[in-house]
Design a protein around this nucleic acid. Structure first.
Length: 288
DNA sequence: TGCCCCCTGCAG
DNA sequence: CTGCAGGGGGCA
């Protein structure tokens, strides 16, 4: 699923399309994917769109009360905007790269706006969700409670990163980076890319990292995520933006999805194995 | 900290 | 047909 750069791209897309729009209707086609009182959403207005790690937070205001729509896309969630009037957003026509009009088989929740624009929440594997919570109950959300630092903020300094690592000296670096309670937003793709760029093998034990390696890794995490955002995300299988377009980060990826292909740095074949429960790509020559 | 699980579809 | 896929919750 979408990792930080994909969710950030969607957030920016939603800013351009649904901010300040009034919701007139919500259709929940798969009840398990929505929790909370859906009647609250009707006639509410989108007042802000934010991101925390891989979680999207859409503020909706109704009768001067504030609520949050917590949206997690998990592995295959998509948010696709469709407009009859705004150019470049479908309008009853198939949105590339989809080859069927919306709604399609994966569509699970549909939001309609006063403008007659629509937002489709598609999710093939149905792991994603929308949770509606009143503002005063936001702090009760355990996922948001436990989530770690935002890696693209000024607070994510080298010193902060080093201190986080000190708290889990025995973990391997891949599992550490995937753990959302330490750093928010890294997933399988950007983790593999980050450790590659830093020249570190994914199963290295945290306490074995040198100061120089920590410095390199800190920089590569930020660089990789920033590149992901600039290229509008990584479209391995199902990720698309609000405009229906794929991201192009994977064309630039050094290891992810490149098993058996020559390393861009040294030419040796990229290896793929399983680590921390996930497919893990690396170069046994460039990473130590 | 490491598995199994939630699902569906597609590559090998 | 089996295994695998951008996640993460729940369970030893």
């Amino acid at each position: 699923m979408p990792e930080l750069p994909e969710v950030e791209t969607i957030k920016l897309g939603l800013h351009r399309t649904i901010l300040n729009q009034k919701i007139t209707k919500i259709d929940i086609l798969l009840p398990k994917m929505f929790s909370g009182d859906p009647t609250v959403v009707t006639n509410a207005t989108i007042s802000d769109i934010k991101r925390r790690g891989k979680m999207l937070i859409i503020d909706v205001t109704k009768d001067s009360y504030l609520y949050h729509l917590l949206i997690h896309l998990k592995m295959t969630g998509q948010l696709i905007f469709e407009s009859q009037t705004k150019p470049g957003f479908g309008g009853g026509h198939p949105v590339p790269p989809l080859n069927t009009p919306l709604p399609n088989k994966s569509t699970k929740i549909i939001m309609e706006f006063e403008s007659e624009d629509k937002l489709y929440f598609n999710d093939l594997r149905t792991f994603g969700y929308i949770k509606l919570v009143p503002a005063r109950q936001l702090h009760e959300n355990t996922f948001l409670q436990q989530i770690g630092i935002e890696p693209l903020t000024p607070e994510f300094t080298l010193e902060t990163f080093a201190k986080l690592l000190e708290k889990r000296p025995k973990a391997n670096i891949k599992a550490f980076l995937l753990d959302q309670t330490h750093i928010a937003g890294l997933g399988n793709i950007y983790t593999d890319e980050s450790v590659f760029r830093a020249g570190i093998l994914p199963w290295r034990i945290v306490s074995s990292l040198s100061e120089q390696e920590i410095l390199l890794l800190h920089g590569s995490i930020k660089d990789v995520l920033q590149a992901g955002i600039e290229l509008q995300g990584a479209s391995q299988t199902s990720y698309i933006g609000v405009d229906g377009k794929k991201g192009t980060f994977l064309a630039q990826a050094a290891v992810y999805g490149r098993a058996n292909l020559p390393c861009l740095n040294c030419g040796q074949p990229i290896q793929k194995t399983k680590w921390a429960g996930r497919g893990t790509h690396y170069c046994s020559n460039c990473q130590k």
